[in-house]
């Protein structure tokens, strides 16, 4: 009989590989009796969906501000390189 720990491992691995027939049956039996593991299964797929929706939907993180000093420093570097570039091409 699977423990919840075993079952959680199979639920997780089921996201990454094909489970064997034997593993599937064992897991199904466990899930049938175990509310917590059914919730874990839902949470794992919920997490995946939320991440993928946020990611593929182009809703990438924008929660941080590039610090002012870094922006200034990068601006200088870009300027130098743009100048190099235009000098070499003329």
């Amino acid at each position: 009989m699977l423990t919840c720990k075993d079952a959680s491992r199979l639920i997780s691995e089921g996201q990454d590989r094909k489970l064997s027939q034997r593993e599937k049956i064992g897991l199904r039996l466990h899930l049938w009796m175990c509310d917590s593991c059914r919730l874990f299964e839902k949470q794992v797929s919920h997490l995946r969906q939320a991440l993928r929706r946020g990611w593929s939907g182009g809703d990438l993180p924008t929660d941080k501000q590039l610090p002012e000093e870094a922006q200034e420093r990068i601006r200088k570097v870009l300027k130098e390189h743009s100048n190099d570039d235009s000098n070499s091409s003329t």
């Binding site: 990438l60 993180p61 924008t62 929660d63 941080k64 501000q65 590039l66 870094a70 922006q71 990068i74 601006r75 870009l78 300027k79 390189h81 743009s82």
Partner: peptide
Amino acid sequence: EPERWLEEHGSALYSF
């Protein structure tokens, strides 16, 4: 132009 990239996208790239 690259400076504009920095201004418009710098913080998004930084967050990422």
